[in-house]
């Protein structure tokens, strides 16, 4: 990975959430989620009741990573999208630039053709948001640690306190 952390600010969050909402509507999907390649959920729209989003994101990222491993073995750089067809619910996964994964879950109210079309339409804009996120992280406008960051001031006591409750 790049030498910087992944930092999501309000502005990019608003933009990317807006795009996810739009895709949800335009594709008639049940659920849309944007995930980073390491499996962190970044934003989502719609709902899948009783589904743990962290687990979902990690499985989607693992799925894409394994498929990319397969692609490279047969000399392809990557398979740009993946489709899993269930009896009534389906999942479409697509790469967004170098660091993002877009997941769309849909049922009979939509179709693979429509989902694929809408994903293709929204992808460049999503990629742009990721690029902005990354360049902000790199230029240090969004330094996660060090002076000026919320984490620069962490004390040993703060860290100890994390373990006082919850366990």
């Amino acid at each position: 990975m790049s030498a910087s952390d992944l930092v999501l600010h309000e502005e990019e969050h608003r933009r990317i959430s807006g795009l996810a909402e739009r895709l949800l509507r335009d594709a008639n999907a049940r659920f849309v989620s944007l995930i980073d390649r390491n499996g962190q959920p970044i934003t989502s729209a719609g709902s899948l009741p009783d589904v743990d989003r962290t687990a979902l994101a990690s499985l989607a990222a693992g799925n894409v990573a394994a498929t990319e491993g397969l692609a490279r073995m047969i000399g392809e750089q990557t398979f740009s999208s993946l489709y899993h067809e269930g009896e009534s619910d389906h999942i479409y996964l697509s790469s967004i630039g170098a660091i993002g994964i877009l997941m769309v879950a849909f049922d009979e109210r939509s179709s693979l053709g429509l989902v694929r079309l809408r994903v293709r339409q929204v992808s460049p804009e999503m990629e742009k948001v990721f690029d902005d996120m990354l360049s902000k992280s790199r230029t240090g406008t969004a330094e996660p640690g060090g002076p000026g960051s919320p984490f620069a001031e962490i004390t040993d006591e703060d860290i100890d306190n994390l373990f006082s409750d919850g366990f």
Binding site: S4, D5, L6, V7, L8, H9, E10, H13, R14
Partner: peptide, 9 residues
């Protein structure tokens, strides 16, 4: 690579 989400803090 830590992921820092300022929108959700």
């Amino acid at each position: 690579m830590p992921f820092i989400n300022y929108a959700h803090r």
